[in-house]
Amino acid sequence: MTTFKGNFGDYKIISILGECSEGKAAVHLAKHIPSSTMVALKRFYMDKMTNAEQTYSVELEIATAKQLQHPNILQYHTNFVHGFDVYVVSPLMAYCSCRDLLNQHFNNGLPQQAILIILRDLLCALAYMHRNGYIHRAIKASHVLVSETGKSCLTGFKYSCLRVLKGKWQNNVHSFLSDPKPVLNWTSPELLEQNLQGYNDQSDMYSVGMFICELANGSEPFLGMACTLMLTEKLRGCVPQLLDCTTVPRQTEGDCVISPIIVNRRFSKDLHEVTGLCLSRNPNHRPKAGKLLNHSLFKSIKKRTLSLNELLKPALPLSDKVAFNREDVENLDVNHFSNLALCTWDF
């Protein structure tokens, strides 16, 4: 097994994959020199973070990830300080995030089978987190990464909170997100409401519903809507739907042009139903992550008609774009990656 040490000299940065947290962090593609393996190197610019809350969120993100061990949760190999920056080394997720896939190849959304395969992995990760008393609080496409073999991993733990507090299991949590802006559109109404009742892990299931819509439709939920309007919509129980021939009329009036992809496709009844249940206004009506895994919805995956890699074509894993494990990597032209630099990772 390869051991990754916290020596900056062990890593050669090849290119930038994206920026996150408003330019206060970046993700690099890098080579771990001792083992010649490619890794993702997340770099936090600590000196750009001026208040204690920001630096604390870096500590929290890493510490939380370290307390979670599951095949569908992104593991960190190691982390270290170099210069003014903190670096985190993790396995390279060759398809980047689901958000990147949507941005680059699937503007109108992913095919149903791909959604199901990704969703199942996400639910496995979430069931594990909930069992261990964590609420993720930031389920969204940019926090789900897809590996070269088509396995999805959850990340984005700077938003997570623990229900075990002061030596007690809290039935309901009341804390609010410290930097909520990037995740607000996926956040459940009860969390946003901040009332005395608080919220629990079923809040994540609401975000799962938003996540399914995001993967299916290609766009972020409530994109471009003012926050206050988004909140009132959610409180009234207004939620997005999966756009297909059953929900979008073929004939539209005026100039509104709807992609033929959308009006010609059909998501299964099951998927529509599950999405609706996840987006229930009442948290108790939403399915539990662990229970949802047994839904007949996922039976179709078992037939294994197509692998995720096939389904994601024309998107290719980074490995196919890069000469891996070769000396070529040393001389790699960074311009090769210009299209990748456009993608923003938001862990």
Binding site: G6, E59, I62, A63, K66, F80
Partner: peptide, 9 residues
Amino acid sequence: VSTFDIASD
């Protein structure tokens, strides 16, 4: 120590 999370903790 060089490992950031442990040093911070």
